Amino acid sequence: MRGLVFVALLAVACSSEVRAQDAAAGEKVFVVCKACHQIGDNAKNVVGPVLNGIIGRKAGSVPGYAYSAANKDSGITWDEPTFREYIKDPKAKVPGTKMVYAGLKDEQKISDLLAFLKQFDADGKKK
């Protein structure tokens, strides 16, 4: 019996640590995204659209950005599960997207990135 308890405790101790979403860590992840996207008060569409208020927004709906037909016609409304799937492999989720990004596979970094993005409302103000 003690052996079983020891094995269970060892398994718990050796399991990878799962952290909550961390917006500060997500801001560091966003550095890669900055090559194409902006967020915040003065954000503008550049290579990619502004990401203000992305969670809850319909895909292909930022005014003034020339989306691919694939993105505009995807029928996606961005929520956490959809964003997670998309950011892992954009071309698999939306074939024909203009987004040239291989994808982010690390679940914790995705969680942190979401925490960072969710701070900004549609006007780029921090909530």
Rank of each mutant, 00 (worst) to 15 (best):
Q38L: 08
V62D: 09
C33P: 11
L51P: 02
P49V: 06
N71C: 01
S68L: 12
Y65C: 06
G26I: 12
A25D: 04
N45E: 13
K44W: 05
I39Q: 10
P63D: 14
I76E: 00
G75N: 01
A23M: 02
I39W: 12
A69P: 00
K72Y: 00
A43M: 12
N52K: 07
G53S: 04
G53Q: 05
C33Y: 11
V31N: 12
V31H: 10
K28C: 09
A66I: 02
D73A: 09
A70E: 08
G26Q: 11
S68R: 11
L51V: 08
A66W: 00
V47P: 03
S61D: 14
V29G: 06
A70G: 03
A70L: 04
T77L: 06
V46G: 14
V47M: 13
A70C: 04
A69C: 01
L51H: 07
P49F: 07
V50L: 00
H37N: 08
A59Q: 06
P49W: 06
R57M: 15
Y65H: 15
I55C: 01
G40W: 07
G40C: 09
V62C: 10
V32C: 02
A24E: 14
N52H: 05
L51Q: 07
D41S: 14
F30N: 09
P63Y: 00
C33D: 08
E27C: 10
K58V: 13
G75A: 06
A59G: 10
I39V: 15
K34T: 15
A66N: 14
N71P: 00
Q21F: 04
A69N: 07
A23T: 02
G75S: 01
Y67R: 09
S68C: 08
R57P: 15
Q38Y: 02
S61M: 12
G60K: 11
Y67G: 03
I76N: 01
K34L: 15
S74H: 03
Y67V: 06
A35M: 09
Q21N: 03
I76T: 03
S74Q: 03
A25R: 13
H37E: 03
N45Y: 12
K58I: 05
D73Q: 13
T77P: 01
S74V: 02
N71G: 01
V29E: 07
H37Y: 08
I76M: 02
C33A: 03
E27P: 10
E27Q: 15
S74E: 01
V29I: 15
